[in-house]
Amino acid sequence: MADQAVQDQRIAAMTFASIYPHYVTKVEKKGRTVEELHQVIEWLTGYDSAALQSHIDEKSTFSTFFQDANLHPNAALIKGVICGVRVEEIETPLTRQVRYLDKLVDELSKGKKMEKILRS
């Protein structure tokens, strides 16, 4: 349990700006676009491109990034395994939200249709 608390703290302290380039690389390598990535992030968080850029410029931690977000009401429909853990079983809200984002980026890079990714 102590290991999970350390992991949760580490995730909370990471900056969105440090992870964002990895998301871009991952989706572009698989033939998807930055615009599609932004669409997915906006669906989950409510951030438009300007707000997203602001969080990148300010080097917001994931804690701040998700604290300011308006999480989509259907975010709880995001299920599956990411990093060897079932997203829906993650107890710490912030860690679960970060993994929601990871899962959506993963689905985008795997070529899933946007309607399915956005749970519409």
Score class of each variant (00 low, 15 high):
110 K>E: 12
72 H>A: 12
88 E>F: 09
43 W>D: 03
74 N>S: 13
33 T>S: 15
31 G>S: 05
94 L>K: 09
90 I>R: 04
39 Q>C: 05
31 G>T: 04
16 F>G: 10
61 T>Q: 02
11 I>R: 04
7 Q>K: 12
53 Q>Y: 06
82 I>M: 11
100 Y>F: 15
16 F>L: 11
102 D>P: 04
76 A>Y: 05
103 K>D: 09
6 V>S: 04
98 V>F: 12
33 T>M: 11
86 R>Q: 10
83 C>T: 09
14 M>E: 15
120 S>I: 00
65 F>E: 02
94 L>Q: 11
64 T>H: 05
8 D>W: 06
48 D>A: 04
108 L>E: 05
17 A>E: 15
17 A>Y: 11
59 K>G: 05
26 K>D: 02
84 G>V: 06
63 S>W: 06
25 T>R: 13
106 D>P: 00
43 W>G: 01
26 K>P: 00
5 A>N: 04
78 I>K: 04
70 N>E: 11
114 M>H: 05
52 L>T: 06
58 E>Q: 14
111 G>E: 10
112 K>V: 12
37 L>E: 04
28 E>L: 10
6 V>I: 13
10 R>Q: 13
57 D>F: 09
36 E>K: 07
51 A>R: 11
25 T>A: 14
11 I>M: 07
24 V>L: 10
82 I>P: 00
113 K>M: 08
18 S>D: 15
16 F>W: 13
30 K>F: 06
68 D>R: 14
99 R>T: 08
87 V>M: 03
108 L>T: 03
16 F>D: 11
89 E>V: 07
112 K>N: 02
114 M>D: 01
80 G>T: 08
79 K>G: 03
44 L>H: 10
2 A>S: 10
77 L>Q: 12
53 Q>S: 13
119 R>C: 00
119 R>I: 00
83 C>H: 12
63 S>C: 01
59 K>E: 13
74 N>I: 02
117 I>Q: 01
10 R>I: 01
86 R>C: 08
80 G>M: 08
10 R>G: 05
32 R>G: 06
21 P>V: 13
59 K>D: 11
65 F>C: 11
78 I>G: 06
95 T>R: 14
63 S>D: 12
23 Y>M: 12
6 V>Y: 00
97 Q>S: 15
69 A>Y: 08
88 E>N: 14
87 V>K: 03
91 E>P: 00
16 F>Y: 14
8 D>G: 05
88 E>M: 08
105 V>D: 00
41 I>M: 07
81 V>W: 04
17 A>W: 09
115 E>L: 09
81 V>C: 01
85 V>P: 01
40 V>S: 01
41 I>N: 05
55 H>S: 13
35 E>F: 10
46 G>R: 04
37 L>K: 05
99 R>W: 09
113 K>W: 07
80 G>I: 06
100 Y>S: 06
106 D>Y: 10
107 E>W: 00
55 H>T: 07
37 L>P: 11
62 F>R: 03
110 K>R: 12
18 S>H: 12
112 K>F: 11
56 I>T: 04
120 S>K: 03
116 K>W: 03
104 L>H: 02
12 A>C: 08
82 I>V: 15
28 E>D: 04
103 K>I: 02
3 D>H: 14
112 K>Q: 11
41 I>K: 02
114 M>Y: 03
105 V>C: 05
57 D>N: 15
67 Q>W: 05
9 Q>N: 13
100 Y>E: 01
27 V>N: 07
64 T>S: 12
82 I>T: 15
36 E>D: 09
